[in-house]
Design a protein around this nucleic acid. Structure first.
Length: 299
DNA sequence: ACCCTCACCTGCACGC
DNA sequence: TGCGTGCAGGTGAGGG
């Protein structure tokens, strides 16, 4: 389902709901979800951890976990609290790295609510509620890693700069495009080059900047790179600002679904272009559907 | 190093 | 109704 804006939306909802909670137990019904860890070691490691934060890197959700280990003899550890009395515990930090891929979603269930179909992981929290990971197509992945290893994790380490930071600027984008032999549409989907777009927002960003999806990336003029850079940021920002889930945290209704659809070309084959009225076209490109206005996006 | 295709899964909408 | 086909917002492995 999700591209960066949807993931950001899920992160914010999770943050409101689960930060501060302790995971008292878990169930993993789909072992490959958490591989290469075994189910038993995953459960052992995550049990008793406290959720200290929820953040995001690209489309990866990062659930930050602290595990306090009691130390014998009241010895202070360097991660323990400083203060008058010596710490009697050490804190180990972990991150549960989650990628929703196509159909992953989190649910936050009350004690009396039934598990939905395709619930592959269940985390029992200390407030008598459950955080559930559901994923119809089973593409989603979950990795529990020490916080110190996060940055080097394969899949994370290679990611392009975050689109809302100054590192993602038009000079960076021009540099990336110049080196590529691929079409713009294909390149925009590559998370190691441009971060956060998926099939919908790549199409939307190209439409917004009036650039043809099939154009070779290296052939885009500097002027139009600037336009594309603006469009990418605007499309993502607009989506983050306007996404609304139909969910209610207190009622325990699900996250990650029921997003409004406000895109202008995606899934609009045959409909009139909002700018010029020409019928939107669709083609398969690199195995995926691409939508564009043949008049607005001629070049 | 790059780029492409396919594989990973289930479910849904469509046409016959 | 049933069955076959194509398609779905993501990525990684494996090949050229």
């Amino acid at each position: 389902m999700p591209e960066l804006p949807e993931v950001e939306h899920v992160v914010r909802a999770l943050r409101r709901a689960i930060v501060g909670r302790t995971i008292i137990a878990s169930e993993i019904k789909l072992p490959k979800l958490i591989s290469p860890l075994s189910v038993s070691s995953f459960k052992r490691k995550i049990k008793g951890t406290q959720i200290t934060g929820v953040s995001r890197r690209g489309k990866f959700i990062l659930i930050e976990l602290d595990y306090r280990v009691a130390l014998p003899h009241g010895r202070a550890s360097d991660t323990g609290s400083a203060g008058a009395s010596p710490a009697r515990f050490a804190t180990r930090r972990f991150v549960l790295v989650v990628h929703l891929r196509m159909t992953g979603a989190f649910l936050y269930l009350n004690a009396d609510e039934e598990l939905p179909k395709h619930a592959h992981a269940v985390f029992y929290l200390d407030n008598d509620r459950r955080l559930v990971f559901r994923d119809q197509r089973k593409f989603g992945v979950m990795k529990l890693v020490p916080a110190s290893q996060l940055a080097a994790l394969r899949g994370i380490a290679e990611l392009a700069p975050e689109p809302f930071t100054s590192d993602f600027n038009s000079d960076y984008l021009q540099d990336v495009l110049k080196r590529s032999q691929r079409s713009l549409k294909t390149l925009l989907l590559d998370q190691t080059k441009v971060l956060g777009l998926g099939n919908i927002y790549a199409a939307e960003a190209l439409f917004r900047s009036r650039i043809n999806p099939f154009k070779p990336a290296a052939k885009l003029s500097k002027q139009r790179v600037v336009l594309l850079h603006e469009a990418i940021k605007e499309v993502l920002e607009f989506a983050v600002a306007h996404l609304r889930g139909g969910f209610n945290l207190e009622a325990g209704v699900s996250y990650g679904e029921a997003f409004e659809r406000f895109w202008q070309v995606y899934e609009r084959e045959g409909e009139p272009c909002v700018k010029c009225g020409t019928r939107i076209k669709r083609a398969t490109h690199g195995g995926r559907s691409t939508y564009w206005c043949p008049k607005c996006q001629r070049r």
